[in-house]
Design a protein around this nucleic acid. Sequence first.
DNA 1: CCAGTATATATGTGTTGTCCTATACTTGTT
DNA 2: AACAAGTATAGGACAACACATATATACTGG
Lengths: 210, 210
Amino acid sequence: MSLEHAILGFLRERPMTGYDLKNVCFDESASHFWTADQSQVYRTLDRLETRRLVRAKRERQTSRPDRKIYSITDTGGAELDAWIARSDTPPPLRDPFLIRLRFAADLPDDDLLGLLRDRRDALQERLESLRVRSAEGSAEPRDRATLLHRLTLDAAATDVRAEIDWIDDSLELLEARIEQENPTPPGGQSRLFSPARGARGSVTDEGSAT
Amino acid sequence: MSLEHAILGFLRERPMTGYDLKNVCFDESASHFWTADQSQVYRTLDRLETRRLVRAKRERQTSRPDRKIYSITDTGGAELDAWIARSDTPPPLRDPFLIRLRFAADLPDDDLLGLLRDRRDALQERLESLRVRSAEGSAEPRDRATLLHRLTLDAAATDVRAEIDWIDDSLELLEARIEQENPTPPGGQSRLFSPARGARGSVTDEGSAT
DNA sequence: CCAGTATATATGTGTTGTCCTATACTTGTT
DNA sequence: AACAAGTATAGGACAACACATATATACTGG
């Protein structure tokens, strides 16, 4: 299981509580390549502990609930190393958006274009936040760990950028086709498709993950 | 749920059995953006039927088990249309490979490079099969459904290509850094890292798919 | 003063997805 | 004749993930 190994990885960098794993590691540092629910983190830690891959030191606290500081064991480290060295097949692309698109033939033109533009906007935002986080790191990472961390950020950014480019191409294709299907009246009312940008607010959803 | 709507989408194109949904639709046509297990397909069909979104016509067969030919209902169609028009946030990137990479600092150089090259090879293969499927379609799709289908293929291909490019960049960075960490002995054994590169590197893009 | 946020862990429950097995007959292969 | 593969559906078991709630306290802002 991937989450197990991600946790082992973080714990090898430094011992930590489940709380920190969730709020610091997964929410801030790893969110661009793996996300995890709080309950899932704690349950996974339990499982790792019974399997002796991690060890917990209970720390008494008067004012707050006791903290359990987890650290990785030798067995855990060995398991992690073995897992890391393993090649596996890349996960298949799995995106509800593509299902929508695949079956959107009967959707009104504006809705279809809106769908694509909404997605592009969302991706643009995501790219921006990746850029910010990427800029936070040093320009020239000195240790290998930092470089690898940077590379995962690059992977995410590359991915998002590619999707944006694909959407732009798709929009062009669709706009051209729509125009040719119902040709523009001579008057110049051609703006049916291109201009609506700012006006449309069909952002059905807009939950910020986590 | 996405699978439900993918099934509704396929059933709207034509009534079908669960068997065909799995073996024709998901395995052959939709595998590049959504995959589904056989048991999952049948169970989902059951659920859709009890919710009256699809309807089954049982067809007696003497020699084989009865077929159940599912078709979409009006309610199902309405539900599908509503779902398609809904914008949602793009799914977060979720890739075990990036976990590996993130924590691979202590991996021996060769293993690390091997990991990246294995992944690139796997992606290359995937890209090839996408190209083949893309070439099967007509060059100039006439109806919108075909165009949209094509676009989903493009999305998958774009995605894979972007990942390959990212890996190539990463390999270059890592190779340079490794070289500088343990400088090449004067004898000229420097080919440890460079050689595989030129052999295949440029097959990566070359977009003459259609 | 009350609400909200942060610290910290835990559990219940439901959904989605994977793997495996069972059934049953036909056709093609070695 | 034996065995695999194709047609066709079904269900058990389980892993992974998501959503919600519970507990307990301290601090901060309106």
